[in-house]
Computed example of a mutant assay.
Amino acid sequence: MQTKMQTIEGNVLTADGWIAGTISFADKIEEIQGSEVDPRSNNAAYILPGFIDLHVHGAGGKDTMEAGDAVQVISRMHAQHGTTSMLATTMTAPMSDLEAALQALAGVCQQRTAGSARVLGVHLEGPYINPGKLGAQPDFAHAGSLEQVKYLDAIAPIKLITLAPEVEGNLAMVSQLTALGMRVQLGHTLGTYEDGVAALENGASSFTHLYNAMSRLDHRAPGMVGAALAHANFAEIIPDLLHVHPGAIKAAMRAIPKVYCVTDSTSASGMPDGEYMLGRQVVHKCLGGVRLADGTLAGSTLTMDQALRNLVKIGLELDDASKRVSTYAADFLGLSDRGRLQVNAYADLVVLDRDLNLVAVYIEGEKIELKDA
């Protein structure tokens, strides 16, 4: 996608800190000029790295598992909220459903369409999870299969897999998956602290929606949460302030160096209250959340711009919050050319006013037309 050279100015959060100046870019950043600044000393706009969301099930009434054109709708909607790249996330489901979803994702992963976030690949959330800790996942969980993963990866690139390490055969598969270049997260698990530590030693590197759908921390049975807090370098968390209390968010960020934020967004994101689908499950959007009929939280309606505002609301400095909605997710995937504003990185950036509302979004240099702008 051809993009012309553009220059914008403001308080630019570079990889080395804040400057007051300009950033020039086409599809990649060509030049950043300016002088060091405390952005609180002026009223200029903030220019931050575009948001990266590694856990996206849906938006705009569409769910990844629907296949068809669902991911185009989803990626366009999230681009409207500053997400410049994302992983399309599947649900625990029969193999035929997973095949159909990945076949629909294959072309989108290869070619970004105008107005859409870059789909970096697939986050396979299950089916290799514990059937006793499904959360909002449908009951199609089963033990892991390396052959099955390879088959699906040949359809569309799998970048991240969530699994439960205590399920028979899954621990051995962790090292095999990491050898293939995939990231492994621990989640939807009843595993012990020891199970978590063993999985980390075998190559697992993060935790899926930390605290949610995993064995809890107790002082005599630290559980999977304890393994994360004691040993992890990365973990994803949902900062909608419904899934996790602000105090627990802060505790995680104090213990785990690179906690990054995800939306775990559903088809209900950006839609009015009502009934929606999450894989094969009917979910209900009401009171700002998404739940199953029994009240279980089932993903969220969060967007990444709101995630940023929520982090600042609970006391994080803007530069720290920015890393947690962008840079750390890129680091987790091993991407040095996204999630940071520096020369030769992709021109993925957001411009925010002083109230942290989106003013502009650029994806690989393309300015996205914001519907409410």
Rank of each mutant, 00 (worst) to 15 (best):
I363T: 12
D139W: 08
A143W: 10
L318H: 03
A156Q: 00
V282Q: 14
M253E: 02
L278C: 10
M77F: 14
L308D: 11
D153V: 06
Q176D: 12
P49K: 01
Q342R: 11
M304D: 07
M65N: 01
L98N: 03
I129W: 09
G226K: 00
V225S: 01
E201S: 10
M1G: 15
I237F: 05
L316G: 06
G115S: 13
T90Y: 05
S206C: 04
S215D: 04
M5W: 12
T208C: 05
V262I: 12
V12H: 00
Y193R: 01
K285N: 06
A154H: 11
F207Y: 14
R354M: 09
I52Y: 00
Y151A: 15
I29T: 15
H188T: 04
Y276R: 01
H284R: 08
A114D: 15
E201F: 13
T327E: 10
A252Q: 01
T178F: 07
A230N: 08
T84F: 09
L358F: 00
L190E: 15
E66A: 08
I8E: 09
M5S: 15
S205I: 08
V361N: 04
I368H: 13
M214Q: 04
M95I: 12
A235L: 01
Y128P: 00
L356V: 11
F25V: 04
G295M: 06
Y346I: 03
P165Q: 04
N310F: 05
K159Q: 06
E30A: 14
V71G: 05
D27Y: 09
L160P: 00
L98Q: 06
A101W: 01
Y211R: 05
V108N: 06
A67N: 08
R340W: 03
G34S: 08
